[in-house]
Design a protein around this nucleic acid. Sequence first.
DNA 1: TGTTGTGAACGCTTTCACAGCT
DNA 2: AGCTGTGAAAGCGTTCACAACA
Lengths: 230, 230
Amino acid sequence: MTQLQRRKIPDAAIARLPIYLQILNNLAATNVLRFSSDELAALAGVNAAKVRKDLSYLGSYGTRGVGYEVTYLTHQIKRELGLMREWNVVVVGAGNLGCALAKFDGFLSRGFPVVAIVDNDPKKIGRTTSSLTVGDVSDLKNIVRDEKISIGVITTSSSASQAAVDALVEAGITSILNFAPVVLSTPSSVSVRNVDLGVELQILSYFEQMRFETGSKSENAPQLNSAGAR
Amino acid sequence: MTQLQRRKIPDAAIARLPIYLQILNNLAATNVLRFSSDELAALAGVNAAKVRKDLSYLGSYGTRGVGYEVTYLTHQIKRELGLMREWNVVVVGAGNLGCALAKFDGFLSRGFPVVAIVDNDPKKIGRTTSSLTVGDVSDLKNIVRDEKISIGVITTSSSASQAAVDALVEAGITSILNFAPVVLSTPSSVSVRNVDLGVELQILSYFEQMRFETGSKSENAPQLNSAGAR
DNA sequence: TGTTGTGAACGCTTTCACAGCT
DNA sequence: AGCTGTGAAAGCGTTCACAACA
């Protein structure tokens, strides 16, 4: 049985679309109307051919000899990424990181309002952190339904993270952003994205060490193409 | 002139080493002494051949017919990543995220103590947040020297981030972890790693949308191989 | 003329499959 | 017998280079 297959855009290209989008927002803010693949490439720090190929996956929205229109292309990228609507977010884990993210402007401004924060610690439940009251994780199912939440962000300790995932899955959440440094087990129907802040530093450490070993004379620092692995 | 070239490990493999390391730590905590590539592959959610190839870049540290030793391999990965020592960290930007990261256990526990936090806002300078007093960003050069800091973490607003980078570079920092959603310009001798939390959600949004469009019947969620681009 | 869109070449990464050790 | 280490093959992603077109 053939799956209704959406036009398939390569993963690597999908991962760059948000970056282009951000640059287009900046261009729009400075009243730029059009841009060429060369210009966007320079701003994004990539090759112009890559930009053209990435944008071509969206459709043929450029004009030969002229370039691309900022507003039109912004619209197309947002459509592709599913950003034509807002997605409500719940933060699980009301520690320092969780509270910081609940207030984090970068979520709301990109269309991801944090509408709830929960914890399992009775001492934290009921506290208020910037207009949100910490809820009980055992109410998650109701909260997700009532607040129409689509995405869960896990900021618990490592040891509590598996329980947090289970609660989110049980509540019907299918997209999870995980900050706990653990490989979580989930049904394959759930999308998980891990952001391990410790790992980010460890990768920097690798290059910092290389700088020591090679005598740090080199003008070009080695650079990892910003890939976390699965 | 030929550069003193270190044994080159592919970027993709480097990005996976921290994940293996974390799993090895878990194994050690449960008193496991040995493991096979199959076992590690299952825990990391990757192919066994990939595990063997990745580990082979470190040297031939396994035993045919037996497997790998947890402690020995842990040592080798740490050596390769430059984790045999601690790297002191300074956080630039004493907002919610900056303060949360300054307290964040996941940094210290992996050998990255946050030894200083600075800001440019007079209202924040002098405040204390978990044993650290917020310093003045204009003192950065002295702080970096006195505290022997190797890595800078930027948690300022987007608009202040370029100034933060400049201050770090001026202070002699060559490794930067940036949380501001901006493409920063730095000398090529500096390693920068961007973590854009908004982008992480935008990529999840893409898959959440696909689930809607395809009728969400599919048992297997699409999954991006956790690559940020750059 | 200037810039897009894209086959084709290239290079990096993953996977296969099995020889080589223990 | 079992598992590692690794050439070789396959698969992806990037870059080149140029035809197509405004």
